[in-house]
C-alpha cells in the first residue's frame, strides 16, 4: 500500500471542503454587566431550552465597545457556555478584542455585509425532497406541492412556494421569499444569503421559528398571532414584523 493520499482513485476522497452557510443566532450586548447578561440569557433560554441547547452563537460587541473599555471576553464566553451555547465568533470588536478572541480560539466575524465571507453554497446536504426542478438554477422559483415532513429540509436558491403543509421538525430555506399555503409548523428562513428585503407569506402561521436574513422569532414570540389568519413577515429597521394580510 502506498501512502499517497491520492492513490484511492476509485474511491471517494476521505474529505471534501465545501462552502456552506448557516444561520447562527447573534447575541447583541447593549450593556456590559456580566450578572445582568447571565440573568437575561438564562431567561431567554428558559423560554426555549431545547431550541437553544448547544446552539452556536456569535457575540456582537458593536454597542458595548462604545461605552466600555476593558471587556473581559473570557468571562463573556464562560457565561454563554454556562447557558449551553457554543460561542463561535465575535464581531464588532476593536482590534484588541479580535486578538483576545483569537487567542481564546474564537474566530472574528466581519460585520459589514460586503465584507461578509458569504460563499454561495454549492449544494446543501438535506434529507432530499423529491424535486420538480433543478436545484442549481439560480433565482429559480421552487414549487413544492406535497407536505414537507418532520426531518426534511428544503433549500431554494430563489423563491420557495409550498402549496402544502410544513410539518413541525422540518426546515425550509430560501435565498428569496417564502410562500406557504398550508399550515407552517416547522422552521422557515427567508433571505438566507443576506437578503433583508425578502418576505415570508403564510396562510396559517404556527412556526417553530421564522427568520429573515438571520433575524428571527421563535414560536413563543408568535403567541399573539391568531392561527389560521394569513400573515406576512418582513424586516423593518432590523426588526422582524408580522402583519395580517
Amino acid at each position: 500500500m502506498s501512502s499517497n493520499p491520492h492513490n484511492a482513485t476509485s474511491q471517494r476522497p476521505v474529505l471534501e471542503l465545501k462552502s456552506s452557510s448557516f444561520t447562527v443566532p447573534l447575541l447583541v450586548l447593549n450593556k456590559y454587566d456580566l450578572h445582568l447578561i447571565s440573568d437575561q440569557l438564562a431567561f431567554k433560554v428558559q423560554q426555549a431550552p431545547e431550541f437553544f441547547k448547544n446552539s452556536p452563537l456569535i457575540i456582537d460587541l458593536n454597542i458595548l465597545v462604545k461605552t466600555t473599555t476593558d471587556l473581559d471576553l473570557k468571562a463573556l464566553f464562560d457565561i454563554v457556555r454556562k447557558h449551553k451555547f457554543i460561542p463561535v465568533g465575535i464581531r464588532g470588536g476593536k482590534p484588541e478584542h479580535n486578538t483576545a478572541a483569537n487567542e481564546l480560539g474564537i474566530p472574528v466575524q466581519s460585520t459589514t455585509q460586503t465584507n461578509r465571507p458569504a460563499p454561495k453554497p454549492q449544494k446543501i446536504e438535506t434529507t432530499p425532497v423529491a424535486e420538480q426542478q433543478s436545484d442549481n438554477e439560480k433565482n429559480q422559483t421552487k414549487i413544492i406541492t406535497h407536505p414537507i415532513r418532520s426531518g426534511q429540509r428544503v433549500y431554494a436558491h430563489g423563491d420557495l412556494i409550498v402549496l402544502s403543509q410544513v410539518s413541525a421538525g422540518s426546515e425550509i430555506m430560501a435565498e428569496g421569499n417564502i410562500h406557504v399555503y398550508g399550515t407552517l409548523r416547522g422552521r422557515a428562513l427567508a433571505g438566507v444569503q443576506g437578503n433583508s428585503g425578502s418576505r415570508i407569506f403564510c396562510s396559517n402561521l404556527q412556526a417553530e421559528l421564522v427568520s429573515i436574513d438571520g433575524i428571527y422569532k421563535i414560536n413563543d414570540d408568535l403567541n399573539d398571532i391568531s392561527p389560521g389568519k394569513p400573515v406576512q413577515l418582513f424586516l423593518k429597521e432590523q426588526n422582524l414584523v408580522i402583519e395580517y394580510l
Binding site: 434529507t127 432530499p128 423529491a130 415532513r149 418532520s150 426531518g151 410539518s167 413541525a168 421538525g169 422540518s170
Partner: peptide
C-alpha cells in the same frame, strides 16, 4: 404522530420509488 410524520418524510425521499423518480 410526530414519529409518523418523520417516517412519511423518509418514505417520500428514501425509497426505491423516490430514488428512481417513479410514482411515490
Amino acid at each position: 404522530v410526530r414519529d409518523s410524520d418523520r417516517m412519511l418524510g423518509i418514505l417520500s425521499s428514501k425509497s426505491r420509488r423516490a430514488e428512481q423518480g417513479k410514482d411515490p
